[in-house]
Amino acid sequence: MKPLLLLVIACLFFPKNQGLAQAETGNNYRNFPIVFSLQFHSLAMPFKDLKSNFKNVGFGIGTEVSHNGLHNWVQQFDLIWIKNKGIGNGILLSTQTSYRPMMVGNIFAEVKAGVGYLKSFKPSQSYQQIDGKWNEAKKNGKGMLAFPIGLGLGQHNHSESSYISPFFGYQMILVTNYNQDIPIVPQTLFQIAGRIHPNYSNVIQD
């Protein structure tokens, strides 16, 4: 994992021919893509217990909108279904600000951070005592404020018609108020995704 981390960091801090690359992005970007992703979740410290991530496959859908004319700052919106047999499933709704400079050719690096709301469910049936009798508890789960931070690498494949830009990322999510004794719980996500950029003008014209 360390080589990947170093590569992403290197790409972020030393983008090749940044101005030209960004200019190309600016010309070739399209807002509101549809982002489909596979999300591999784990309760783990960052870059630890990586095997566990790949036992838990969930999925996500999202979109994004550019903050500037160069389109190297974007705001992302994601809804992720977290599948995790060990600690319980969850739904994460989040928005993150992403810095995404273009690198070599059409490769981009990404660093992002934001805020979200995680609804976490228990991994098994739970029980509650009411008036001295045990009842199966409703599966409402618990809602918690979450702070995702992430790194990524991807390919920007612009085309005049609809096109897909694949990328992958690694996210750490700091989940707050897990219980009375653990104020912050670290969770991680490996993301393999495709950013589908439909040509909306064509859609409208059609």
Partner: peptide, 10 residues
């Protein structure tokens, strides 16, 4: 009581 909410998980 994973979430300290009074519901118990096996």
């Amino acid at each position: 009581d994973r979430f300290s909410d009074g519901t118990l998980e096996n």
